Amino acid sequence: MDRNEPEALPPPGYAEVRIVAASPDAARMVADVLRHCFAGGEQRSYPVPGGGTRLHLTVDTAHPAEPARSWLAASRPPSGAGPHAEEP
């Protein structure tokens, strides 16, 4: 892909994650943590010029696993907590 071309966006509800690490094991450990939080597809791994690994992973943000679901729920404001329409 030419660096001047716009990168294709993943489908709605998905995120592309790129992990760059000095070793394949370090990249896999980070990918494993993400897989515990989000459903995801197969990872793709590439060598980095000069050493290291670049790992690409697609995660499904619409179906978070329990750790992410808990964090997402806690980070959202509670519904109905604001003033009613008739209140100033």
Rank of each mutant, 00 (worst) to 15 (best):
V20L: 11
G50F: 09
P64R: 04
P83G: 04
M29L: 12
H84Q: 10
D32F: 13
V59G: 01
M1R: 10
A21W: 03
A31D: 01
E87I: 01
L72S: 02
A39N: 13
S23F: 08
E42T: 07
V30T: 09
G41L: 06
P24W: 14
R28Y: 01
P6N: 11
D32V: 04
A22T: 01
G41C: 10
V48W: 03
C37E: 14
G13Q: 05
A27L: 07
D60G: 02
L9I: 00
G50P: 08
H63F: 10
L34R: 09
S45E: 15
R35W: 06
H36D: 14
A73L: 08
S23L: 09
C37S: 14
A15N: 07
V48A: 09
L72Q: 08
A8R: 15
H63W: 09
R44K: 12
S75R: 12
V33C: 00
A68W: 01
P11E: 15
S79C: 00
P24K: 14
H56N: 14
A85K: 07
R54C: 14
A65H: 12
R18G: 06
S79I: 04
R18N: 04
P49E: 13
G82V: 05
H36P: 00
Y46V: 01
G13N: 06
T61P: 01
E42F: 00
C37V: 00
P6S: 13
Q43A: 15
P10R: 07
Y14N: 05
L9T: 10
N4H: 15
A31V: 03
M1P: 09
V48C: 10
L9M: 13
D60N: 11
R69M: 10
R54E: 15
E5F: 06
V20K: 11
A27V: 06
G80H: 05
S79E: 13
A15V: 12
H36S: 13
A15H: 08
L55V: 02
E87S: 10
A15M: 12
M29N: 08
R76S: 14
E16S: 13
E87K: 05
W71T: 06
M1F: 10
T61S: 07
E5D: 12
E87A: 08
E7H: 05
P78G: 11
G13F: 05
E42M: 04
D2V: 10
E42K: 02
S75C: 06
A21H: 06
V30A: 08
T58I: 13
G52E: 01
P49F: 07
R69W: 13
P64W: 06
P47K: 04
P83C: 03
A62P: 06
V20P: 00
L34N: 10
Y14M: 10
S79Y: 01
H36N: 13
P83S: 11
P83H: 07
R28Q: 07
P24E: 15
A15Q: 11
V30K: 01
L72F: 05
E16H: 11
V48D: 03
D60R: 03
F38Y: 14
P78C: 00
R44Y: 07
E87Y: 04
H56K: 13
G13M: 02
D25K: 12
R76N: 13
A65V: 00
P78M: 08
W71R: 09
